[in-house]
Nucleic acid binder design. Structure first.
Length: 118
DNA sequence: ATGTTGACATTGA
DNA sequence: TTCAATGCCAACA
């Protein structure tokens, strides 16, 4: 549509909207968020939105990469803040320090719908 | 204004 | 199998 002055800053807003829907004790990946927005290739930009979300109420700590690694932990006030936050919500970690996506992976728009694993 | 980098993911060779 | 290249959007030099 064409509204020249309207759909430009939406990308961040959309990402923030989705992230805000992540239930406590669950996590999602950049790719899933991007895919939900219709652009899976923009997973990178999703990370930017997260960085820009610092200082907001967004649970950016619930967003991890495809491997479940806390890639954004370094952007937190402390090296253990992100992991501690997730643990505080009941999220389990693997021996590699990665989130057990098999148990906590949440997908946008699933709306609580049960999602089978591969 | 242009080019590079970045909390990623996918495909091709 | 692993390595390299591509796509996307925004901020920074």
């Amino acid at each position: 549509m064409s509204t020249p002055s309207g759909d430009r800053n939406d990308f961040f807003s959309r990402v923030w909207q989705v992230v805000a829907q992540i239930p406590r004790g669950k996590v999602t990946t950049y790719g899933h968020i991007a895919a939900h927005l219709g652009v899976r290739s923009s997973a990178r930009t999703v990370g930017w939105a997260m960085k820009a979300a610092k200082g907001t109420t967004l649970p950016c700590h619930r967003v991890v990469n495809r491997f479940g690694a806390l890639t954004g932990a370094q952007s937190f006030p402390g090296p253990r803040v992100m992991e501690d936050l997730l643990r505080s919500e009941g999220v389990a970690f693997d021996d590699d320090g990665c989130v057990v996506l098999s148990a906590h992976l949440w997908i946008p728009a699933s709306d609580g719908a049960y999602q089978p694993v591969d």
